[in-house]
Amino acid sequence: MSDTRKTWMSLLAKAPPTALGRLWDSTGLAPDFNWLRAPEIGSTMVQGRMGGSGAPFNLGEMTVTRCALRLTDDGTVGHAYVQGRDKTHARTAALIDALMQTPLESRLRTEVLDPLKAALDERRRTRAAKAAATKVDFFTMVRGED
């Protein structure tokens, strides 16, 4: 459970807020809920590793918004930790996290998660394709020929 939940929570966090908002709105879902933790803006210290693979060090912080809520209907709890300062993004992510634990799961997967995943995959593919177009082969020239 936690593995698949981790996957959808990660996807919801990485999704562009506008795209997520549009897909969520088009589901027409608007469940009643109570805040366990109202959306709160804070930071996370990002750690790197010396030499890429050595011991950790603190690189700098990033902004993060988090919230937690409980669905009024069946008491399911949803959490969100998302990059940036968009409280609506966090709220929508937490609502979907909660509903993904209910029978609405397959509908949300088709209507929200799958399109988000496809868009993110496409963005990665485009980025890789543009990078690949700038791949070079350097030739070493002979020096000091007589």
């Binding site: 804070g42 790197g48 912080e61």
Partner: peptide
């Protein structure tokens, strides 16, 4: 930055 509550630290990045 100093006004933000710190939620925690990330896992070390995998560059």
């Amino acid at each position: 930055r100093t006004t933000l509550p710190r939620f925690g630290a990330s896992r070390p990045l995998d560059t």
